[in-house]
Amino acid sequence: MAAATPAIRSPTASPRDWLVPLVLFALLAAVPLLAKLGPEGFILSLMTRVVVVALAAMSLDLLIGYGGLVSFGHAAFLGIGAYAVGILSSHGIEEAGPQLAAAIGGSVLFALASGVIALRTQGVYFIMITLAFGQMLFFLATALSGYGGDDGMTLPGRSLLFDRPWLKGDAALYWVSLAVLGAAYLGLRRVTASRFGRVLRGLKENEIRMEAVGFEAFRYRLVAYALAGAVAGVAGFLLANLSGFVSPAVMSWQRSGDLIFVVVLGGLGSLHGAILGAAAFLLAEEVLSHYLEHWRLVFGPLLVLAVLFARGGLVGIGRGRGA
């Protein structure tokens, strides 16, 4: 009886829950220093991409890993964020504040509007309808001939902070991106552990059970969908600043597929798995494309093999043996 005293206070908390993310962020924080040892601009730009993709993937993890909502249109929010920068700066508004407000506001609006319809559906219908909404936005972007249409548009420069070019340096953009990622990680970690997060996780486990204790699935999922969209919108803002270029390609359905892959590769339902997944994905792409012209011939089968054999993602690799 003594041994069975219930661990009421966070029964599954283990040092591991903090250790791995801590190491990951420490490594990311060391990047600007290490970058000086090599081609600095290249390393910083690649690692900023890792951070930005991790941010988008982390928000997708909130949906897939915690909410059980397999969204196949998440790149649409990247696109909204990126176009918020592109469209506003083409009208002379280069200040980050309004751009971010537009990125977040646009993402939330789109999430609410599309979520109201998509979240009425289940399972595979949800996958396909999110895909369709993503495509809808993609085609809208290609038709925006005033903003580059198919070809996209080049930005006049990076966003301004309080009228100053704080983001101009590569290291500055990296640090800002990393800070956003850190804030998103801490924020989402709290959200997933909160009352709201518990409802979201419960709905993934057993929707009818949750409705039978009084939770209306739709509302909680819609809020989660909007929250994830907002975070991905911020990632889109950063992505536009990183590449200095905005085109419909950022929200093609393949990008949405990439994001799902990153989350699954890293490990669902862990948040920091998104960082591991993004690093592994982008570095593998970088290395493969460096050595092989047709690197996708290797990359595609790798994806298939990863699905067939590496279940639980990178996060799960050490965990299985450690336990």
Binding site: I127, H294, R296, F299, G300, A306, V307
Partner: peptide
């Protein structure tokens, strides 16, 4: 490939068949 995926969840199916698309689009290009 596919017959190993019938028992998997939709997420796995989406990912694995997405991998096939990447491969075949490139293979055709080669």
């Amino acid at each position: 490939v596919f017959r190993h995926l019938y028992d998997r969840d939709h997420l796995d199916q989406v990912l694995a068949t997405f991998g096939i698309i990447i491969f075949l689009n490139e293979a055709v290009r080669v």
